[in-house]
């Protein structure tokens, strides 16, 4: 075998468009003008083949309805599950944003303050726009409560004066952690306040639950995306197997790899597109089914919570995710299996 000269190979390549689209019967000597026409004819035939192949691969899917439907069902379920979980997360986010009842900041006032001063301070707190509620627990009330809850009545009677400070419990409007922490520092800096204690337990629990759920959805989403790739890849592999003869004949009469691959890539595209459309229907139908019970539940809690479905943007994301997974799955399968089908 003689050594290959890269220069000459390059020259071969440049000739290709001319050679491939030029009818052998036409005289080849028309120079640059001819070459231009050939290039446009070439791209025209390229577009034509794309159109033809796109349609043909769709028709082929119809020709084997049962296997096609089964594949589509698997794809749709694999795409609908992350979609549903995503909608669930969105709604949980909405609940947690709305949840302003829980977080509270307890302000322990200096013991030197008189009851009147404590009262004045709690009045001042009421005027703050970032607080939803203010509750004053005077030293006296605090003592009574302590006695009631702890049962240390006898012990307290030994003490000369009331050891408890007055407490102002405030309820912030916002429940986001950063806002709460900032508010806590701000309130702690006030003259009357000795200590500001933030009751974060519920806020933190909810936040970590949402974070965990986000992570779970991400992991499951990736796994299900992989399964979409595998399902599409396997379907395409079977398709290549079924059309082996055709591929061999096409390669023998001069089909390029791209030409042979095209129908399978389009099959992957259709699987992705139709699969994600059906998945979208699954998600929206499921939401319709649970919307009644959810509304009843919400009514019991007197919340203004509203069940959210997939919005326009989310729907488009689902659609594109399906298409891209279909394309990647078919590309992987085609790249792996098509080289094996060479004419013998």
């Amino acid at each position: 075998m003689a050594g290959r000269e890269p220069v000459k190979r390059g020259a071969e390549r440049q000739q290709r468009p001319t050679r491939s689209s030029e009818a052998p019967a036409t005289p080849p000597s028309k120079g640059a003008a001819k070459h231009k026409v050939d290039l446009s004819a070439h791209s025209k035939s390229w577009i034509r083949h794309h159109k033809h192949t796109a349609l043909d691969s769709l028709v082929r899917l119809q020709r084997t309805p049962l296997p096609t439907l089964m594949t589509l069902a698997v794809l749709a379920i694999a795409l609908a599950l992350p979609g549903l979980m995503f909608v669930g997360l969105k709604n949980i986010d909405q609940i947690s944003a709305e949840w302003n009842g829980e977080p509270k900041v307890s302000l322990y006032l200096h013991k030197t303050l008189t009851d009147q001063q404590a009262e004045n301070f709690s009045q001042a707190m009421l005027l703050r726009p970032d607080l939803a509620g203010v509750e004053l627990v005077t030293r006296e009330q605090g003592l009574h409560e302590f006695q009631r809850i702890s049962g240390f009545t006898d012990v307290l009677e030994f003490l000369d004066n009331n050891p408890l400070p007055a407490v102002v419990v405030v309820q912030p409007r916002e429940s986001r952690k950063e806002v709460l922490l900032k508010l806590q520092t701000e309130l702690a800096a006030l003259n009357e306040v000795e200590e500001a204690v933030l009751d974060m337990v519920w806020v933190e629990r909810l936040a970590s639950f949402v974070a965990l759920a986000n992570r779970v959805v991400l992991v499951l989403g990736i796994l299900l995306a992989l399964s979409v790739l595998l399902v599409v890849g396997n379907t395409i592999r079977l398709g290549i197997e079924n059309r082996k003869d055709e591929i061999q004949v096409a390669k023998l009469v001069g089909a390029t790899d791209a030409w042979v691959k095209r129908p399978f890539i389009y099959t992957g595209f259709w699987f992705g597109l139709i699969g994600s459309l059906v998945a979208w229907l699954f998600v929206q139908t499921s939401l319709l089914v649970i919307s009644d019970p959810v509304e009843r539940l919400v009514a019991l809690y007197q919340s203004d919570f509203q069940l959210q479905g997939l919005g326009v943007v989310d729907s488009l994301v689902l659609l594109f995710a399906g298409i891209i997974l279909g394309l990647i799955g078919s590309k992987l399968a085609v790249g792996r299996h098509l080289r094996e089908v060479e004419p013998q």
């Binding site: 290959r4 071969e12 009469v253 030409w259």
Partner: peptide
């Protein structure tokens, strides 16, 4: 054309200049 200089990508264009008939006709 020395065929050794044709890369894998050049093969289709080479085959388009040739007609082949097989014993088992290879019709679809």
């Amino acid at each position: 054309h020395d065929l050794a200089q044709f890369s894998r990508d050049d093969i289709p264009y080479h085959r388009r200049r040739i007609g082949v008939v097989f014993q088992n006709h290879q019709l679809l």
